[in-house]
């Protein structure tokens, strides 16, 4: 059975930001299931069906990955590199959502083919509005890449 809405993978280690993002998505009636990975290793486990996600059907990939950069275990840029290196996830829309102000992160994010790079607004209302627009853009307006199929 094909679920009506594909999932969103939220890779976020800060519980406050996680709660806020979930709230903003719900408030805007974006009904996609949100899978939360709290470090880089968990994110890759979900995408590749390993670790606690062993056996997950990896033909089903999220419609959007919201990726923080500063993460325990494996950082966001390393996660992105692994996503782009694997045929199953190469075309996944990945939006970097970060507080990082470092030019290095911006340059590396794009060099590793992030689809978009967004600075997390610090102010509550602005953060909610940013998540709303990100959700609308990637879940409603953007045409997702075709589903990966095993050759």
């Amino acid at each position: 059975m094909i679920p009506l809405h594909k999932s969103i993978l939220l890779v976020e280690d800060n519980p406050d930001d996680e709660a806020l993002t979930l709230r903003a998505l719900r408030k805007n009636h974006l009904l996609n299931e949100v899978v939360v990975a709290r470090d880089g290793a968990e994110a890759l486990d979900y995408l590749f069906g390993t670790g606690r996600y062993a056996g997950r059907d990896t033909q089903e990939q999220p419609q959007l990955v919201l990726l923080d950069l500063k993460l325990p275990k494996l950082d966001g840029l390393q996660v992105l590199q692994r996503i782009r290196a694997d045929a199953r996830t190469r075309q996944l829309p990945v939006v970097i959502l970060t507080t990082s102000n470092e030019e290095h992160d911006l340059v590396s994010g794009y060099a590793l083919q992030a689809n978009s790079y967004i600075r997390k607004p610090v102010e509550f209302e602005a953060f909610m509005e940013a998540v709303r627009r990100i959700g609308l853009y990637w879940l409603v307006l953007n045409e997702a890449p075709p589903q990966w199929k095993e050759e």
């Binding site: 030019e103 911006l106 978009s116 967004i118 600075r119 627009r133 990100i134 609308l136 853009y137 307006l141």
Partner: peptide
């Protein structure tokens, strides 16, 4: 409406590469 959303996303939300 679509083009407005697209433009606002890439012009005021997204951080372009340097």
């Amino acid at each position: 409406q679509m083009l407005g959303e697209v433009a606002h996303y890439w012009l005021s939300l997204n951080e372009p590469p340097p």
